[in-house]
């Protein structure tokens, strides 16, 4: 800690503040956020917030709950696709095992991750048709990008002696990976998969914006037609669903990492 404090010299900090401040003012000017407009903001936000009450529970019950369930299913399928494809890629992408292959796989996964999932969905919706299937594929693609990177890092940080022992005893590379590597890395990989599931759930909520299923389409439509009580139902139920799933998934993840 003390080393880090020493390296972070105050000189840098004041320069950084100055530059960021200048950039901020330029940006505010560029998006036409004048002081008068900013001064009106709190009142404006307060007025709109008032419209969200009372929550339309009937809409919540009949329309939002099914859409949230669809979002969860979408996120799950996306995660399964991501996990299945990323598992071999994680092993092949480990620079300690396959140095040449690793560069290619890491480059591809960086490119995949750079494009937000909703942009993948834009391509997939015309290809596989409107609906959650396109969304699941989009999430799957993006999950592959993230999980193979994280997975490769897990494999790289693993002790390879168990693998070498299997190979020394005459096992093939494949057998060595199966018996010497996977048992060590699987719990951590599964923890990453669950974490990705949590992320996918949030992402799946917005895919509806481009017609790829889930709860996002409902929010967009209710807000567009100024049905604020219905939009409130979407928001409240989404928050509750995400909190609940985070809770369950988080506790399983901690168990996995403790090795229990």
């Amino acid at each position: 800690m003390s080393a880090a404090v020493r390296r972070f010299r105050p000189g840098y900090a004041s320069w950084a503040t100055l530059i960021v401040g200048a950039l901020l003012i330029w940006s505010l000017w560029a998006i036409e956020a004048s002081p008068e407009r900013l001064a009106r903001l709190p009142a404006q936000l307060g007025t709109v917030l008032g419209f969200f009450w009372p929550v339309d529970w009937h809409y919540g019950h009949t329309r939002v709950v099914p859409a949230i369930i669809e979002s969860i299913q979408l996120a799950w399928i996306g995660t399964i696709i991501g996990a299945l494809i990323s598992l071999p890629l994680a092993v092949l992408g480990a620079s300690t095992l396959f140095p040449w292959c690793s560069r290619v796989i890491k480059g591809i996964s960086a490119a995949i991750r750079a494009v937000p999932e909703i942009l993948w969905a834009i391509y997939l919706v015309p290809i596989v048709g409107l609906g959650p299937f396109a969304g699941a594929l989009a999430l799957g693609i993006n999950s592959v990008g993230m999980l193979s990177k994280l997975g490769a890092e897990v494999v790289e940080s693993t002790d390879l002696s168990a693998m070498q022992a299997v190979e020394a005893a005459g096992g093939s590379k494949l057998v060595a990976i199966r018996l010497g590597l996977l048992p060590q890395v699987l719990p951590e990989l599964m923890a990453h998969w669950l974490f990705r599931f949590e992320l996918n759930l949030r992402a799946s909520a917005v895919l509806g914006v481009v017609g790829a299923g889930g709860v996002g389409g409902l929010l967009l439509n209710t807000l567009r037609y100024r049905q604020f009580e219905m939009a409130a139902a979407v928001l409240v139920l989404t928050v509750l669903a995400v909190l609940a799933i985070d809770l369950v998934s988080g506790s399983i993840r901690r168990k996995l990492l403790r090795g229990g």
């Binding site: 404006q44 709109v48 909703i118 914006v209 996002g216 967009l220 807000l223 100024r226 909190l243």
Partner: peptide, 18 residues
């Protein structure tokens, strides 16, 4: 609670408000 909502949800809300 802040963390549960994705960025695009906030964008829709603020686009409606301002």
């Amino acid at each position: 609670i802040l963390r549960t909502l994705p960025d695009l949800f906030w964008a829709m809300l603020f686009a409606t408000a301002v």
